[in-house]
Amino acid sequence: MSGRREQSSVDRKSGEQANKTPAGHGQRAHGYRSTQKRKRRILDVVRVLVVLIVVVITVVPILWIILSGFKSQGECLHNPPIWIPRNPSWANYQDMWTDGGALSLKNSLIVTVGGTLVAVLGGVLVAYSISRFRTGGQHLANWVLSVKFLPPIAFAIPIATMYRVLHLIDTHFGLILVYGAFNLPFVVWTMKGFMDEVPRQLDESAMIDGCTRIGVMWRIVLPLSAPGLVSATLLTFIFIWSEYLFALVLGQNELFTVPVRLSSYYSQAEGWVCAPQAALATLAILPMIAMAFIGQRFIVRAMTFGAVKQ
C-alpha cells in the first residue's frame, strides 16, 4: 500500500478544490478523477522503482568497499570480480592498523577536533557581531563567504612556503590553524542565519535586566540557535575529516591524515594493495555514515539552509 499515504497528502491540496468544484459537473468530473487516480498509481510505481534503483546505485559501491576490507589481496583484484570474500578475516585491518593506519586516524582526529573547535568558537563570535551590528557591512560579509569558494590550491602554495619558514610544516598546530581559518566562513554564514532568527528585542531586554553583551550572546542567543550550532559543528567536522589537499601539502613528511594515507597505497614496487586500503577507507567512512543516520535532520538543514533562504 505504497500509494495511500502519498495520495492523502496530495489530495489535501487538490482534494479540497475537488470537493468544491465537481458538485455541479457530475459525470465529467468523475471521469477526470478516475484518470487522475490511474495516473497517480503509475507515478507511485515509478517512484518505488526509482527509489530502489537509487538505493542500489548508492549503496552497492559502499558495500563493495566494506566487503573488500575482508578479502585477500588476490580476491580484491580478481577477474571476474568476487563479491563475497571466501575467507573473511581481519588480517587487512591488522596490517592497515600497524602500517600507518592507527597513526593516521590519530592525526586526523587531532586536527579535525582542533580545527572544528577553532572554526566554531571563532565563527560564533563573528556571526554574532555581523548578525547584531552588521559589522563591516555587506562587503565584509561577502568577502568572508567568498573565501570558502576560492580554490585551495591557490592558497596552498604560499602557505606551504610560509609554513616552512615558521616551522609549521608537519605539525598538528599548523593544520589546525589552516582548517580553523578556512572553515570559519561556513560557520559564520550558518550561525549568522540562525542568529538573525532570534529577535533582537531579546538581547535588548536582557541587557536592561543587567546582562552583558557577551552574556547575552552566550546565555540567550546561542542556546536559541542551538540547532544551527549543532549543524555547523557536524558539517565542519565532516569537511575537515575529508580534507585532502592541505593535509597533503602541509604534512609532506611525517604528519599524514587518513585521506593522505588512503592516497598512498600504490607503489612501483608492490603495485596496488587495495585490500588494506579498503579497510582504512571503511574506518574513514563509518563514522560519517553513522552521522548521516543520527544527525540527518541537522545536516540536511545546514546544507539546504544557505541556498533556500533568500
Partner: peptide, 20 residues
C-alpha cells in the same frame, strides 16, 4: 510531497555527500 520511502531515500542519499 510525501511519498513512500522518503525517509529512506533522504538518509541513503546523505551518505555520498558525507563521505570523503
Amino acid at each position: 510531497g510525501e511519498f513512500w520511502g522518503k525517509k529512506v531515500l533522504t538518509t541513503v542519499f546523505l551518505i555520498p555527500v558525507m563521505i570523503s
